[in-house]
Design a protein around this nucleic acid. Sequence first.
DNA 1: TCAATCATTGACCAATTGGATAATAAACTA
DNA 2: TAGTTTATTATCCAATTGGTCAATGATTGA
Lengths: 203, 203
Amino acid sequence: MKSLSEIRRAELRRAAFAVLQQQGMAGATLEKVAAQAGASKGIVLHYFRNKQEVFEHAMREANAQLMESIVLRMRQARSPQERLFAIIDGNFAEHFFQPSVCQGWLSLCAAVPHDKTLARIQRVIHARMRSNLVSALKDLVAAKDIEATALGITTLIDGLWLRRSLQGERFTRREALEQMEDYVRARTGLALGLADAFRQASP
Amino acid sequence: MKSLSEIRRAELRRAAFAVLQQQGMAGATLEKVAAQAGASKGIVLHYFRNKQEVFEHAMREANAQLMESIVLRMRQARSPQERLFAIIDGNFAEHFFQPSVCQGWLSLCAAVPHDKTLARIQRVIHARMRSNLVSALKDLVAAKDIEATALGITTLIDGLWLRRSLQGERFTRREALEQMEDYVRARTGLALGLADAFRQASP
DNA sequence: TCAATCATTGACCAATTGGATAATAAACTA
DNA sequence: TAGTTTATTATCCAATTGGTCAATGATTGA
């Protein structure tokens, strides 16, 4: 049983992230967040202490959406290799790997160095991503290479998100998945088949 | 002979980037830029049409500093492999691969989707980086792999810069260079020795 | 039913800020 | 040197915005 208050808070933090996607941090005002949620500005500050808190929850919201995408795939995974696939593929889900979403995310990243709470949230997010990857890689690469490989994968993911932000539709999901595939193959010898959906026919 | 006007403009765009490093886009006000340059706010709008233009020039300035770092190394390079080294190593020059600098850069990236001119500048920057890499890779990897490898390298660089922004000193230059070294080795078989400065002794 | 809590709004305020302008000082030029 | 351009500052203004507050409407619960 969700309290009404919880429902509203969820609506608002989703609205906050939506505004971030369209306007970036610079254009992200409380009034716009309220408008996006179809409410008045007062309501936003009724549910959150201040502007900072609003966008802290927006970051949690964005990450929750990403995790949902990953967990969904993770449930189907039966082997370490499939779990690795799930984590990576989840980061490039079609409805998520969109220019606007990436831009919203980038706006939050840019704010991390100037907001202690955002930094804490970011740390938690990164730790979980690393932990998931390490666990999946345990049986796939040599023990001494696990950490570096996990870091490499998250870093490349971040880089691809950034590129999507900067280039929009000119940088495609397909290119991103091919980059990930190449990287994993080059470093682990595994063929995950991340970009298979784009292949013409099987060779 | 640099005109006085050109000198002032250079001071101001350097000041603008400095403010960006410390305060991010949110805290970047014309007054702070002026203060950073030891002048009054009016002067900033005397030399630049408006706030946008100031930060567009700040982005050019930041890129110019990066290019300087690369060109310096490029002049020593005698082989394709050395040129590849120069490009990558230049992106991680000590005075440049600093949390504050990366944060300033990230702030500008986050603004790209909302400023056409920033987007144009970014496009040029990226095109040149790609072109340099492609030229260096021409004799190092198979023709069909050149484009993807070049893109992979820039993407990983971006990702490492982002990580430096998010984690500050907790993510070291050494780790970054090791990631780049691993990546290039995995994809091209080359050992550039990017992280050699950190090695204890030769094995 | 009635009071008490909660949700929501709109008006208001003080602070910030981008930008314009006019006045002044400095530098240059003929 | 006189006059013209350029550099610089201080002041002012309108717009925006985060945040407060009191008033009002809706829900709930005893």
